[in-house]
Amino acid sequence: MEFRAEVASSVGWPLFVRGSYNPLIPALSYALILKTAGRIYALDLGKDHHNPQCDYVGEKHKHRWTEQFRDKEAYVPENITADAADPVGVWRQFCTEAGITHLGTLRPPPPVQQELF
């Protein structure tokens, strides 16, 4: 389950936010994508991350773009406390941390109804 939305900013950056949820794991990602540069800020829940410094960050991590490592370095965002199985709760916390105001409503995903394979 996925969505994509444009993010309006006062200086007019071509910014988009993309959300993606895999309920089978569960794994959840929200990412801010700058059209001209790619992913600049992203929250991942449900899979581990290995930093260029060779440390493992854990299954809750956030990528932030830096000159040195681009989007390869991640850290543990302490203010994200909702669980990967709660995409709406995580979305609210992600928006708060990223300074995004969401004027609409993100509804919970429907339950998985069938075997995938």
Binding site: E2, R4, F16, R18, S20, N22, L24, I25, A27, S29, A31, I33, K35, G38, R39, A42, K47, L116, F117
Partner: peptide, 17 residues
């Protein structure tokens, strides 16, 4: 059955608009 449960293509999609 061994699978990635779609995580690879999900990862790929998250890099692009």
């Amino acid at each position: 059955t061994i699978t990635d449960l779609g995580e690879t293509t999900r990862w790929l999609r998250m890099q692009t608009i």
